[in-house]
């Protein structure tokens, strides 16, 4: 849909690559589990009293890429596991390589695995 709230400026990189809400996972935080593995800690819990629903109202998809909602248009779906992984991994590099002007981001290919640079290794706990 077009929300009709257009702005001349675009959303910032972090708003998609480091925001689980934008990616359909709901409110919460990402965490790094290793060089190329990540996790998600939701900040909302399942309300078991809500008509027996087993999911959070703010989530479209789980971290495995399983859709949690039925969307009204055929061909429309939340991101799958591969897409989620690809988008989230960019987010871990954004604290240093902030935008598309950065040489690392300029040369980024769709399936790039983040290079374990020193900062990245420290950030992810691979190095003290």
């Amino acid at each position: 849909m077009d929300p009709h709230s257009t702005s001349s400026g675009a959303r910032q990189c972090l708003d998609c690559h480091a925001n689980p809400k934008t990616l359909g996972l709901g409110y919460g935080s990402f965490y790094q589990e290793g060089a190329n593995s990540w996790g998600f800690e939701p900040s909302c819990w399942v309300n078991k009293d809500l008509f027996g629903q087993k999911r959070r109202l703010d989530a479209f998809v789980d971290t495995e890429g399983n859709p949690l909602v039925h969307l009204g248009r055929p061909g429309l779906r939340p991101f799958n596991k591969r897409e989620l992984g690809r988008i989230v991994k960019v987010g871990f590099c954004l604290p240093c390589h902030k935008n598309m002007e950065d040489p690392v981001m300029k040369s980024w290919k769709k399936d790039t695995q983040p290079t374990p640079c020193t900062a990245y290794r420290k950030l992810t706990g691979m190095e003290d």
Partner: peptide, 27 residues
């Protein structure tokens, strides 16, 4: 009112080759 959730829309023929990233809204 929040920044929109994004998702994927296949093209009109249902092909996944060049899906478009679009806005999803909860219902």
């Amino acid at each position: 009112f929040e920044s929109p959730v994004l998702g994927v829309l296949k093209d009109e023929k249902g092909h996944e080759a060049s899906p478009e990233v679009v806005i999803l809204v909860p219902g």
